[in-house]
Measured scan of single mutants.
Amino acid sequence: MAEAPPRRLGLGPPPGDAPRAELVALTAVQSEQGEAGGGGSPRRLGLLGSPLPPGAPLPGPGSGSGSACGQRSSAAHKRYRRLQNWVYNVLERPRGWAFVYHVFIFLLVFSCLVLSVLSTIQEHQELANECLLILEFVMIVVFGLEYIVRVWSAGCCCRYRGWQGRFRFARKPFCVIDFIVFVASVAVIAAGTQGNIFATSALRSMRFLQILRMVRMDRRGGTWKLLGSVVYAHSKELITAWYIGFLVLIFASFLVYLAEKDANSDFSSYADSLWWGTITLTTIGYGDKTPHTWLGRVLAAGFALLGISFFALPAGILGSGFALKVQEQHRQKHFEKRRMPAANLIQAAWRLYSTDMSRAYLTATWYYYDSILPSFRELALLFEHVQRARNGGLRPLEVRRAPVPDGAPSRYPPVATCHRPGSTSFCPGESSRMGIKDRIRMGSSQRRTGPSKQHLAPPTMPTSPSSEQVGEATSPTKVQKSWSFNDRTRFRASLRLKPRTSAEDAPSEEVA
Rank of each mutant, 00 (worst) to 15 (best):
K325E: 06
R166L: 10
F303S: 03
G70R: 00
G60R: 09
R79C: 03
A76G: 05
F310L: 02
A18S: 03
G302V: 09
L212P: 00
R8L: 05
I211L: 05
F198I: 00
A343S: 03
L133F: 00
P6R: 08
P54T: 05
L299M: 02
G144A: 12
N129H: 04
Y147N: 11
A271G: 00
D266N: 13
P59R: 09
F182Y: 03
I244F: 07
S185P: 01
Q210H: 04
L345F: 11
L83M: 08
F106L: 00
V117L: 00
D266E: 04
G222R: 14
V149L: 05
A56S: 09
A202G: 14
P61R: 07
Y101H: 04
F208I: 04
K261T: 15
F310V: 00
E123K: 11
F167V: 05
S67T: 11
L145V: 09
Q125H: 00
P173S: 00
G192S: 15
A76V: 06
G37A: 09
A2V: 10
E123A: 07
P42Q: 08
V151L: 09
L135S: 14
E3Q: 12
V188G: 00
V186A: 11
F99S: 02
S63P: 13
V100L: 03
A36P: 05
M139L: 06
L299V: 01
S31R: 08
F143I: 14
G49V: 07
G10A: 01
A233T: 14
G144C: 06
Q210K: 00
P15T: 07
W242L: 13
T200M: 00
Y232H: 05
V109I: 00
F106C: 01
C175F: 00
I121S: 05
M340K: 14
L324M: 15
E123Q: 06
K225Q: 00
Q122R: 01
V326F: 15
R7H: 03
I140N: 06
M206V: 00
A75P: 09
I197F: 00
V188F: 00
E328D: 12
E126D: 10
T240I: 00
Q347L: 07
A21S: 05
C158S: 12
A128G: 05
L247V: 06
K78Q: 13
T200A: 14
Q164E: 06
A56E: 09
Q30E: 02
R213C: 00
G40V: 10
L47R: 11
Q332K: 11
V142L: 08
P341R: 15
S67Y: 07
P13R: 09
D178G: 00
A184S: 12
Q125P: 10
L47V: 12
A233G: 09
L47I: 09
G10D: 09
P61A: 04
Q332R: 15
G40R: 09
V231I: 12
G70V: 11
T27A: 01
T120I: 00
Y257H: 11
H292Y: 10
S235N: 07
Q30H: 01
L295R: 01
P53T: 02
M1I: 12
L23P: 08
L132F: 07
F251I: 03
V114E: 03
Q71H: 07
Y147D: 06
I180M: 00
G60A: 08
E32A: 12
M340I: 13
I250M: 13
S269T: 08
T120S: 05
E22G: 04
A4D: 04
M214I: 03
D17V: 07
S41A: 03
A18V: 07
L113Q: 03
L11Q: 03
S253A: 04
G66V: 01
P57A: 08
E136V: 00
